[in-house]
Amino acid sequence: MALIEVKNLEKIYGDGDVTTPALRDISFNIESGEFIAVMGPSGSGKSTLLHILGFLDRQTSGVYRFGGKTIDDYSKDEIAHVRNKKMGFVFQAFNLLPRATVLENVKLPLVYSGIKQAEWDAMATDVIKSVGLLKRIKHEPSQLSGGERQKVAIARALVNNPNVIFLDEPTGNLDSKSGRTVMEIIQELSEEEKRTIILITHEESTAEYAKRTIHLFDGRVVSDEKVKYQRAARDFVK
């Protein structure tokens, strides 16, 4: 059974006479441990797709199963719990709490996890170390560079050790050098930790870091193929 199953997925905004289809008849499967880039120009429906995959939004028709279950199998609070425990989110705009330190930002998902507060600091420190920001742990976001902020966001997405990490244009607000260091971490997560990664981007060059790309155009899947020559953000990638 695939980790993510999408079948004939449709999303239509608006109701009555004025309707805008955002996604049309989308079908694909994603296995655990895959590294997928969802590509497409703006307005192609990739953010809408990500929201549905992340249980943040609901499709109009079709089926989406995450770990064999649909959004309707859960109550509202259970969905929040699934997002908390099994999914990690990284956004283009980082979305860090401005007046909280790196440590506090990374701890945030633990607050809603049911894990004992005594363990929060150690868990958060671990992931902060893994993204290489240990010396910045007491800093606030305003004291960090863009690349560093996105690494904090990645650490936050990892702290609950989720199966899947959704990244929505993670390098969109970064210069190319910072973007590369962020992609380095993401590739590491895929190669070394075998995490499932779903990366949304409109840049061909960023999509090439993935192993498989799904191209969207006007809400339809126009191609779904393996990346022939995967780019390596660092030399170790085979």
């Binding site: 943040l56 509202k76 609070d77 719990h81 997002r83 989110f89 945030l108 809603y112 936050r156 997405a157």
Partner: peptide, 9 residues
């Protein structure tokens, strides 16, 4: 953000 990362209503 809080809701996206698992806060309930």
């Amino acid at each position: 953000l809080r809701k996206a990362i698992g806060a309930t209503d």
